[in-house]
Simulated assay, not measured.
Amino acid sequence: MKLFAKANKTLAVYAAALTLGISAALSAAPAAAEETFTWKVQAHWPAASSSYTDSLVRLQRVLDERTDGRLKLELYEAGALFSGKETFNAVSRGILEMGAIAASYAQDKVSLAGIASGLPFAFRNVWEVAYFHKNMGFEQMLRDEAAEHGVYWSTEKIFPTEMVVKKPIKTWEDFTRLKIRSSGVLQKFLTDAGASASYVPGSEMYSALDSGVVDGAHWGAVQGAASMSLYEVAKYHVKPALNIAGTDVFIVNQKALNKLPEDMQKIVKDTLNEQFWIRTNEYLFKERSTLAKVIAEDGVEVNKLPDDVQEKLTQAAQKMWEEEAKRSDNAKKALGMVKELLAELGYL
């Protein structure tokens, strides 16, 4: 009897140990599935810019929620690790997993980037550009070109680019005397049209305006100018828009994206696509409300360009469209799509 009792006791110990082992194995399985990933993300926006919070911080929060904390974005403002124009290469090489750039910064890699950053005096409404990207296939064309460099491209939002100036533009001569902070396609356009445009980093724009290094600048439109305090030194907001475009872009290293589990890859892509629509609509609303506020509180005045100035700028712009088309067969095709849409809308 004692032998049987001892055997039963031993079996009970083994059974308990086996149960604990199975339980530990089962509890360890989910832990292995819950691998976390941290991505370094540098923006071209200074932390003071409205889009840093409204776009980048929003994306960080939403991805954290939807992946249950499995994907963390480690955020860096403009210039913290790389210059804006170096960010595409850093993402392409995998030094950064993700970046937020101006489309114009990728012109040496993506032949469509110039058109993406906005043909001047082409589209007149934000919805037209959204239709061009999402319904006519331009977004996929951009994505295919970026993929050749190991980068997943996702336009962040569509918005107008509008200048602020220290003195109102009343004549063509007023325009041609301007020194303007600009970038990308618009920098070339403004210079070719007769002004003097040069690139100044976002972090230096305020001081450049304040000191007279430049007479005008563009950083998005009303929200961008307000968030960078540009109205303190430049009280005139110029309309119409220089362009309306998918100026801001999220770029993701394709290898980093592929390392994520399939469900997380889908979450990232779906969230980026959703962000396009949410931020485009939100930006439009905030443009109107911010303009009303700065007019009422800061004494800002809207400077509508005279008709003859608009006509000359439009003529200069259309010449430049053709130059963009020479970048590649893809660019030629994209410009044809732009003209097709503008003709259907009765603009050409």
Rank of each mutant, 00 (worst) to 15 (best):
M136T: 06
L342C: 01
I115Q: 04
F4S: 14
E297R: 08
E232Y: 12
K85E: 12
A32P: 11
V233S: 05
A106V: 04
I169M: 01
E204N: 15
V268C: 05
S203P: 14
F285T: 13
A116N: 10
S92C: 03
G202H: 08
G184R: 04
K85S: 13
V110S: 01
K255E: 11
L96E: 07
L190C: 01
A12W: 14
A43E: 11
E274A: 08
W45N: 14
Y231M: 00
K239C: 07
E97C: 07
Q254R: 12
Y152S: 05
Q140V: 08
K170M: 04
S27Q: 15
L11G: 08
D215L: 00
S51N: 14
A343C: 12
V249A: 03
K109Q: 12
V91S: 01
D64R: 13
F82C: 02
E274T: 10
K72T: 13
V302T: 08
V129N: 09
W153C: 01
A146G: 00
L178R: 04
Q275C: 07
V214Q: 08
A256C: 06
T19F: 15
R143A: 15
K259E: 12
S92M: 02
A33M: 14
L342S: 06
L242K: 09
Q140Y: 10
H149V: 04
S50H: 10
K333C: 02
Y76S: 08
A5Q: 14
S196Y: 11
L178M: 04
K157V: 13
A221W: 01
L341H: 09
H44T: 13
A197S: 04
L3R: 15
D144L: 03
K9Y: 12
T191W: 05
T314H: 09
W219Q: 15
Y236T: 02
D108F: 07
S211D: 09
T67A: 05
L190R: 06
V294Y: 06
T191L: 02
E344F: 09
Y236W: 04
I169V: 04
S83C: 09
S117V: 01
F123G: 01
I101M: 00
P240F: 01
Q315C: 14
A102H: 15
